[in-house]
Design a protein around this nucleic acid. Structure first.
Lengths: 195, 195
DNA sequence: CGCGAGACTTAGAAAATCTCAGTCTCGTTC
DNA sequence: GAACGAGACTGAGATTTTCTAAGTCTCGCG
């Protein structure tokens, strides 16, 4: 079950360049320099042992093989993109679901976080629970616990709501620890005054 | 037309690990260490913001999202692999098609290269031509020219058939210059005695 | 004939990835 | 229930890959 694999970067460069028929335009789209695209495509061609482009001074032309290759590559990219979007919608703008330890609720303002208009754009739903498993199962993005807990490699953030000596613990998967949503929530927490 | 993209290395690690349900086994398949696979998968999970595996001391378990992700990733890999194999059959064992400049033929033994059993396993067909375009179009893998010629970034190898002061020029795409097939052909040429 | 556009090349910088060595957890064995 | 083994994790440093920057080349155009 071992795959023969061209490099993804090379394929990305190829796909973009083929669409634009220009390394320069492809480079702009990919956010790199034209030299990088040129190198990537050349590397890809070398690893495949075929020419994908005919380089003309006035631009690029796909060779027959290049033209034959392109549709499949685009399709594979679509599959990858769609699958990724389906399983993990872009974090950008995504709202988190948060579990609230019953013991934490008492230390927070009534109705938190829904009383805050700012947080509304970061929180999709809250649930009363302290079950850390729910994070591993992706059923929950974060958890606010009242006490330090054993957890594998989850990310933990300790916050002391303003004027309250009792800390709470903000738990997420590592990938979510540093996202804008998490930061906003932690900051909001830190500046909350306890009831 | 900008794609949201997880890293291919990460996906490869994920796919292999998911099949084996073991980082160690996946690492063996990929030819790297288990630590590398672990890091790749973790990076992927972080970039997606979800957990793909549940790590248990006795091994791995796919999360629901991981299990949902896997089939699409495998399919995309299949598409990539099949397309690549279709457009550029593995060089391994592939025979080259060679163009022979009419002027070169006179400098070579009659029937070259078919008179050599060794070369037979490297050469698929020969054609009488000196048209360098055929290489760019992938219709020819290599060209034996009688004279140095202007060519873009093609790879050129000068050979003097044994006992003959007239050189011939072996032209290929860069990617083919160093493959076993090309080396064998150049070596055979070098030790040919001219008629 | 000089210019501009776009692709190429090379060297060196920057980033991503890998290895290695050590740690941890949990089952298993005695 | 203490020692052991398997497998995963981590962090530091080495290695490899990729990118940038700057300069070159070719071609078409005025």
């Amino acid at each position: 079950m071992t795959y023969r694999f061209p490099s993804l970067n090379g394929l990305k460069a190829f796909e973009a360049a083929a669409r634009h028929l220009s390394f320069k335009a492809a480079a702009a789209e990919l956010g790199v320099t034209a030299g990088a695209v040129s190198q990537q495509v050349k590397r890809l061609e070398m690893s495949l042992g075929i020419s994908l482009f005919r380089r003309l001074p006035q631009g690029l032309l796909l060779t027959r093989k290049g033209a034959a290759y392109l549709p499949d590559i685009s399709r594979a990219f679509d599959v990858l993109t769609d699958a990724t979007e389906a399983v993990a919608p872009a974090l950008n703008g995504r709202k988190l679901s948060i579990g609230l330890d019953p013991l934490v609720i008492e230390r927070l303002p009534k109705g938190w976080p829904r009383h805050s208009t700012e947080l509304e754009s970061y929180v999709r739903e809250t649930r009363i629970t302290d079950d850390i498993e729910l994070i591993w199962n992706n059923e929950l993005d974060a958890l606010l616990l009242a006490r330090q807990t054993r957890h594998g490699s989850l990310s933990e953030h300790t916050v002391c709501p303003n004027g309250n000596s009792e800390p709470v613990f903000f738990i997420t998967r590592p990938g979510l620890a540093e996202c804008r949503q998490s930061r906003a929530i932690v900051e909001a927490l830190a500046s909350e005054s306890a009831e």
